[in-house]
Structure formats: structure tokens, C-alpha cells
């Protein structure tokens, strides 16, 4: 634990502090998600009926695309001066580097979601019916699964010279279950006649996915990190 939780938190805090200093990644992600919202409203005429069908998909398109921007940077910032090598020789479990990065990446995406999703709802004049709790839970579970796989694959793709191109190609096919399940669950929760029980099976699927890939990331990260 001593060589696991502490380094993980240190790395996460280091990333958050660095981001606080520069505000490069999150600001870019925010601008990007605002552009996605605007582009969507041009591409699909946001009339009353269409909105309800559109919102769940848009929420996850914003999360996934803005998330990829952040994931691309996540390990690139550790490569300039081989800082990642510094972490490998440090007395820290390789999985703690993974955990730290997952936490930091999750927080970045969370900040983007916290600003862009309310903005989306306001611009499309959409009222969330009923309980916010389930919606937020689905948002958390889906994003977590996406970040788990994304962080692992980001560490894979930075070892290529064309990492920005490689990451989406690696990541999208693997996150299809998350995209399908999260969009469906969000659709059910945000429907006017929402019946939560229908979303449960989707949420179970997301939880299984989260667990499988969090554990996989944990176990496989040391192999990705080797020099």
C-alpha cells in the first residue's frame, strides 16, 4: 500500500497541479466540446421532438471526443524529459502510475462534463425529468470505464511516433460497449416517462466493463511501461 496509494495520489495531484498552472488541456477540451455542441445544432435541427433523441448521444460524443484530446496529452507530457522513466525507477508499483493517471484523466473529463453538459441542456432547452441521481451515476460509471481503457491505451500509443493518430484507432473499437450501454442508459433515464429499472441491465453491463478493464489495466500496465 505504501508503494501504491501514496505514489498514485502524488502522480494524480502532480498532474492536476500542472494543469492548474497551464490550463492547456481542460481549456482545449472545453472549447472543443462547445464546438461539438454548436456543430450538432447546425447538423440536426433541434426541434422539440428531436432533442430528446439527440441529447444522450451528444453527451457521450462530447465525453468520448473531448476525452481523447485529454488522453493524448496524458502521457506525452511525461515523455519530453523521460519523466516516465523517473517514475519507473522510483519506488512505486507500476499499477500506481496507472491509478494516478486514471484519477487525473477522470478529473479532467469530469470538469469538462460539469461545464459542457449543463451548457448543452440550456442551449437545447432540455429539462432533465425526475431524478438527477441516476443520470449522474450513469455518467460516472460510463466515463470511468472509458478512462480506464483510454489511459491504458494512451500509454500504449505514446510509444509510437504517430501517437495522436494511433490512439483513436485503438480506443474506439474497444469502447463500443461503453458507448452503446451508456447512451442507451442515458436515453432511458432522460426519457419523459423514465422507468429506471430498464436502465439497470445497461448499468450492470457498464459496471462489468469497468471492473474488467480496471483490473486489466492494473495487471497489464507494467508490461506497457517496460523499457
Amino acid at each position: 500500500m505504501r508503494y501504491f496509494i501514496t505514489p498514485a495520489l502524488l502522480i494524480a495531484l502532480k498532474d492536476l497541479y500542472s494543469e492548474w498552472r497551464t490550463r492547456q488541456v481542460v481549456v482545449t477540451m472545453l472549447i472543443f466540446s462547445a464546438l461539438v455542441i454548436v456543430t450538432f445544432s447546425f447538423a440536426f435541427d433541434p426541434t422539440r421532438q428531436a432533442v430528446e433523441a439527440l441529447i444522450p448521444g451528444m453527451i457521450w460524443v462530447i465525453t468520448v471526443f473531448a476525452g481523447i484530446l485529454g488522453l493524448n496529452r496524458s502521457f506525452l507530457s511525461e515523455q519530453k524529459q523521460d519523466q516516465l522513466h523517473g517514475m519507473i525507477v522510483a519506488p512505486a508499483d507500476p499499477a500506481s502510475i496507472y491509478l494516478g493517471k486514471v484519477i487525473a484523466n477522470y478529473v479532467f473529463v469530469f470538469v469538462v462534463q460539469a461545464i459542457s453538459i449543463p451548457l448543452l441542456l440550456i442551449l437545447f432547452d432540455f429539462q432533465v425529468p425526475g431524478d438527477y441521481g441516476w443520470f449522474l451515476l450513469i455518467l460516472f460509471l460510463g466515463t470511468f470505464g472509458f478512462i480506464c481503457v483510454g489511459t491504458l491505451l494512451s500509454a500504449v500509443s505514446i510509444q509510437s511516433k504517430s501517437s495522436e493518430m494511433l490512439l483513436p484507432v485503438l480506443l474506439f473499437p474497444l469502447v463500443t460497449p461503453i458507448v452503446i450501454a451508456a447512451v442507451e442508459a442515458t436515453r432511458i433515464v432522460l426519457a419523459q416517462d423514465a422507468s429506471i429499472s430498464e436502465a439497470f441491465s445497461w448499468m450492470q453491463l457498464i459496471v462489468v466493463y469497468d471492473l474488467v478493464f480496471f483490473v486489466a489495466g492494473f495487471l497489464l500496465f507494467e508490461y506497457v511501461l517496460e523499457v
Binding site: V156, L170, T176, P177, L205, V208, Y209, V212, A216, L220
Partner: peptide, 18 residues
């Protein structure tokens, strides 16, 4: 190898979801 492992364990989940 890492990708070959996570790629395959993803298959049943994809199938369920789809």
C-alpha cells in the same frame, strides 16, 4: 500482446452490448 489480451476479453462484452 497487451492489446491482444484486452481486445479478446472485450469480445463477449461487445456481443452482449450489441
Amino acid at each position: 500482446s497487451v492489446f491482444g489480451i484486452i481486445g479478446f476479453i472485450n469480445v463477449p462484452i461487445v456481443f452482449m452490448a450489441v
